[in-house]
């Protein structure tokens, strides 16, 4: 299929706040094809969640200003009314959030939640919806689903809840699943299971997945392409393999070094990026990363252009154009 499933062009999101304008997302452009997995990485506060909320039309803040284009199946979502978007949300684009402990209304059963998702977009009887919910729970690996379906969220462990939420998200076979830090709130062993589950479901359902994370390890597990964000901007975009083999942007290198790797001696210390993530209220001029960048130089007070190849892979850093400097 020639057409991209989702194509985001020059997405900007800013919030007017009492302290000034917060530019949470700045000129973000990317696309994802059918069946692909795109990882979006960046430290917390880099605008990952805000950009996905903007894509879904979920930013309800009156002080938000959203510009740009978000094409989904060739139609600009930003031009659609909330009613039109509602028909897409949950059906064509589903979303899984970070904290499974708070993502479900506590007074309704797991089965109720899945049934609600089904009935919001299709005419399905209560009984059939319950049957379907049991099937889905079984598919995501919840033992004894016929009993579990009638239990409340608090009766599920965190990992089980996230499985149930994933089951709910996939219940209408969406074309795109956006998973916003789906494993961050979970134990490490559970994290791996959830990632395996997502990968398995992707193969069965052939959904595209955007997985948001601040963890390079998660990216290496799942995605085929990676987009690195810093302070609301895309600083690098690449395939997973070339990103890991040859990161371009100093920020990406920094993120990479802060992940434990098998090919490095156990004893070598993990490096972290020095300094605090840039404050969006008070961004330095030019490249936002320059205050923390080991290779920063005078040119960096200007905003570096995003230099990309024909696939859109590349980075926004003067190192790419100027090479090594004196």
């Amino acid at each position: 299929m020639a057409e991209k499933l989702l194509e985001v062009k020059n997405l900007c999101v800013s919030f007017k706040t009492r302290k000034g304008i917060v530019r949470a997302v700045n000129n973000l452009s990317f696309s994802i094809n059918h069946g692909e997995v795109l990882g979006i990485v960046g430290e917390s506060g880099s605008g990952k969640s805000v950009s996905m909320s903007a894509v879904m039309g979920l930013i309800k803040d009156e002080n938000a200003e959203i510009t740009g284009e978000v094409f989904f199946n060739g139609e600009d979502l930003l031009k659609k009314s909330d009613e039109e978007l509602r028909a897409i949300r949950g059906k064509d684009i589903a979303m899984v959030f970070q904290d499974p402990m708070t993502a479900l209304t506590p007074v309704y059963t797991i089965g109720w939640h899945i049934r609600e998702q089904l009935q919001l977009h299709s005419d399905i009887s209560d009984k059939a919806a319950r049957e379907r919910a049991i099937e889905l729970l079984e598919e995501v690996g919840i033992p004894d689903p016929a009993k579990r379906v009638d239990q409340y969220p608090h009766e599920f462990s965190g990992g089980m809840r996230q499985r149930a939420i994933i089951a709910m998200a996939l219940s209408l076979n969406p074309k795109l699943l956006i998973a916003d830090e789906p494993t961050t709130a979970l134990d490490v062993t559970i994290q791996a299971q959830i990632l395996d589950l997502l990968e398995r479901l992707r193969k069965t359902y052939n959904s595209s997945i955007i997985i948001i994370t601040h963890d390079m390890g998660v990216v290496s597990e799942l995605s085929s392409e990676v987009l690195v964000m810093y302070a609301g901007r895309m600083v690098e975009r690449s395939t997973k393999s070339s990103l890991f083999a040859n990161p371009q942007h100093p920020y990406t290198k920094g993120l990479m070094n802060s992940v434990p790797r098998v090919d490095r001696a156990r004893t070598s210390r993990l490096e972290t990026i020095s300094g605090q993530p840039a404050s969006l209220l008070n961004l330095p001029s030019g490249c936002a990363f320059r205050t923390r960048c080991p290779s920063a130089h005078v040119a960096c007070t200007e905003q570096p252009a995003f230099i990309s190849d024909s696939n859109g892979y590349g980075a926004a850093c003067f190192l790419l154009t100027q090479g090594a400097r004196s």
């Binding site: 979920l58 309800k60 949300r89 979303m95 959030f97 479900l104 209304t105 609600e116 919001l120």
Partner: peptide, 12 residues
């Protein structure tokens, strides 16, 4: 609350 965000994402 988070579950309200989930509901919006579900298309409610």
């Amino acid at each position: 609350e988070d579950y309200i965000k989930t509901e919006r994402a579900k298309g409610a």
